[in-house]
Computed example of a mutant assay.
Amino acid sequence: MSIHSPAPDWFQMPHGHERLWIGLALVWCLIMFAMMPFWHFKGKQNSTGESYSVTPAEFTERAEKFAQTNKVSEHNGIPVAEPPPGGDAYLLARMWSWYPVLKLRKGETYRLHISSADLQHGFSLQPINMNFQVMPGYDHVLTITPTHTGEFTIVCNEFCGIGHHAMIGKIFVE
């Protein structure tokens, strides 16, 4: 067995169609490079909400108080809370549930406070493709205005343990 070095003329400059494809790939890379900052600032996919520091215990207390104060019914043993139009709504993520169920009105604007009591969770509102990371210690506030009526499902899309598959919440919009 022996080690051979490549022949001195092993590399050949691209020619013909190879040059065309390399040129197209380079142009596409430059376009994508320019689009990243453009979509970051103009694409409206980034949250424009506010974020505050809060302890998990404080946020849990706020969510419990909100649920008790605004309770209108129950859904599978979980309180259904209806905030006043223009008011604050609280949504707490904890192993392995969303608390409480929210009841909102179409066309009304709400400030939705989202936080976690224990672990990192993912807030995914279905069938609308709305996704946020929910972290303990942060009160993330989103200003939302429901535009469709119906039943919307909240799914945790960040693995949070053995009961992750059952972490489903609801938002009802009338």
Rank of each mutant, 00 (worst) to 15 (best):
A89P: 01
S73T: 14
I114V: 15
P6I: 09
Y138F: 11
T69M: 08
P85A: 11
G23E: 08
F132M: 08
K71I: 09
H15N: 11
M95D: 14
G163Q: 10
V141G: 06
P84T: 06
L104R: 03
N129I: 05
M95G: 03
M36F: 13
H140W: 05
A25D: 08
W98E: 10
W10T: 07
V54P: 04
M135K: 13
I168P: 01
Y90D: 02
A34C: 11
H164R: 02
Y138K: 13
K42E: 14
E174G: 04
A7T: 05
P79I: 04
P85F: 08
T69K: 15
F41I: 07
K170L: 13
L26E: 06
G49E: 09
F33T: 14
V101N: 11
R62N: 10
M1G: 13
G150I: 07
P79D: 08
E50P: 00
G86P: 09
G137W: 11
I162D: 13
D88P: 01
T147R: 13
T48G: 14
M167I: 01
M32F: 13
H165E: 14
Y138N: 06
I154M: 15
F132T: 04
I171C: 03
E64C: 00
P6L: 12
F33L: 14
G87P: 01
D9E: 14
A93S: 14
S116D: 03
V27D: 02
C29I: 12
S51Q: 15
K106L: 01
N129P: 00
S47P: 01
F159M: 08
E74P: 01
H4N: 07
A81L: 05
Q68I: 02
K170S: 10
N70V: 02
A57V: 10
V72I: 15
K170F: 09
T109H: 10
P56V: 07
A117H: 12
I31Q: 01
S53Q: 12
Y110W: 11
V54H: 06
V27W: 06
E151I: 02
A25C: 09
P100Y: 10
G43V: 06
L125V: 12
A25P: 00
G169T: 06
F152E: 03
H121C: 05
Q68E: 14
P100F: 09
F66W: 11
Y110H: 09
E50S: 10
H113E: 04
W10Q: 02
I171P: 00
S5E: 14
V27P: 00
